[in-house]
């Protein structure tokens, strides 16, 4: 089933994302309300949960903390080209970089948008592409919606798992919202004034 976007077209999703069991997600509360957008640097899960997580076979995107804690066991899978890593919206990509000599050892890195309004993934994507030299698939997962696709792509994402209740097909028009943006970014890497003679 083509329920996934690779580049700007529909594609089959060959990867599964391994998530923590729902019960493991530590509830942070503030004034009685659950904190959705956790502070950058918060621990995603405790060591027990990480150790207990069953890791299925096949192409798999595992949580950053699982990769870090269970590297020894997972390295052969990485070498076989069937392991990717995903980060929570409150994690920092530098923690992943610290684990490998070449970030391009990973065929897939995914960023989880806890809500589409959590913009940390945009800066992270730009850094991965422009600073850290990452060339493989950068995937947006979680609360990924049509109206953010244009900016996601501009910042360096090139694969998108739309939220399950949304039509992936209908979302494709989102890439065409603007034809000539002002800024330099990852996709379109020169500002408008360097690309065209302006009036």
């Amino acid at each position: 089933m083509l329920d996934f976007i690779k580049g700007t077209t529909l594609a089959a999703n060959e990867w599964k994302t391994l998530r923590y069991p729902p019960s493991a997600a530590e509830e942070h509360k503030q004034a009685g309300k659950t904190v959705v957008h956790k502070v950058t640097g918060t621990q995603a899960a405790d060591m027990e949960t990480i150790a207990a997580l069953k890791i299925p076979a096949g192409k798999l995107i595992v949580p950053l903390k699982v990769w870090i804690a269970r590297q020894e066991e997972l390295r052969p899978r990485l070498a076989a080209g069937e392991l990717g890593v995903w980060c929570e919206s409150f994690e920092v990509i530098e923690d992943l970089l610290a684990t490998v000599d070449d970030i391009n050892d990973f065929p897939v890195i995914a960023w989880d948008f806890v809500r589409f309004t959590d913009g940390r993934g945009y800066s992270t994507a730009a850094l991965l592409r422009q600073r850290y030299g990452y060339r493989n698939e950068l995937r947006a997962i979680g609360d990924v919606l049509r109206d953010q696709l244009f900016y996601l792509r501009r910042c360096g994402f090139d694969a998108y798992e739309l939220r399950a209740d949304r039509s992936t097909d209908a979302a494709l028009t989102g890439f065409a919202d603007f034809s000539e943006p002002y800024q330099a970014s990852v996709h379109i890497d020169q500002p408008l004034w360097r690309r065209h003679i302006r009036g």
Partner: peptide, 14 residues
């Protein structure tokens, strides 16, 4: 103004 209009990285700030 031009730089900040639809800046892809900074549309969803805290």
């Amino acid at each position: 103004r031009q730089w900040s209009s639809f800046h892809p990285e900074f549309a969803y700030l805290p």
